[in-house]
Amino acid sequence: MSDRSLDHVTDGDLIADAADARDRGVLDMARDALAQDRVLLAYQPVIGTIGGTIAFHEGLIRLRDETGRIIPAVQFIDVVETAELGREIDCAALRLGLAALAQTPALRLSVNMSARSIGYRRWMQTLQKGLLADATVGERLILEITERSAMQVPELVKTFMTDLQDRGITFALDDFGAGQTSFRYLKEFYFDILKIDGSFVRQCDTDPDNQCILNALISVGQQFDMFTVAEAVETKAEAEFLTQAGIDCLQGYYYGAPELRPGWLRDAEARRKAIG
Rank of each mutant, 00 (worst) to 15 (best):
11 D>Q: 02
11 D>W: 09
94 L>V: 06
84 E>K: 15
222 Q>V: 08
75 Q>V: 11
36 Q>L: 15
21 A>T: 15
256 G>C: 06
32 D>Q: 15
247 I>F: 04
245 A>H: 00
81 E>S: 08
215 N>C: 14
78 D>W: 12
267 D>N: 12
74 V>K: 13
25 G>S: 04
145 I>W: 08
71 I>A: 06
245 A>Q: 00
100 A>V: 09
160 F>S: 07
273 K>T: 11
10 T>S: 03
253 Y>E: 07
200 F>P: 02
8 H>G: 03
23 D>E: 00
229 V>C: 13
209 D>A: 07
114 S>E: 02
236 K>H: 15
170 T>M: 07
85 L>H: 04
63 L>D: 08
24 R>Y: 10
261 R>F: 09
53 T>A: 05
196 I>Q: 03
179 G>Q: 08
95 R>V: 10
275 I>L: 03
226 M>L: 10
172 A>N: 09
144 E>N: 08
24 R>P: 05
128 Q>S: 11
186 L>T: 15
24 R>W: 09
125 Q>E: 01
196 I>S: 02
1 M>H: 13
222 Q>T: 10
233 V>L: 11
141 L>M: 05
155 E>W: 15
1 M>I: 14
209 D>V: 13
98 L>I: 08
224 F>R: 02
221 G>Y: 06
215 N>D: 13
231 E>D: 00
17 D>T: 14
174 D>P: 01
184 R>T: 12
73 A>S: 14
125 Q>C: 00
270 A>F: 10
240 E>W: 10
76 F>C: 00
52 G>A: 01
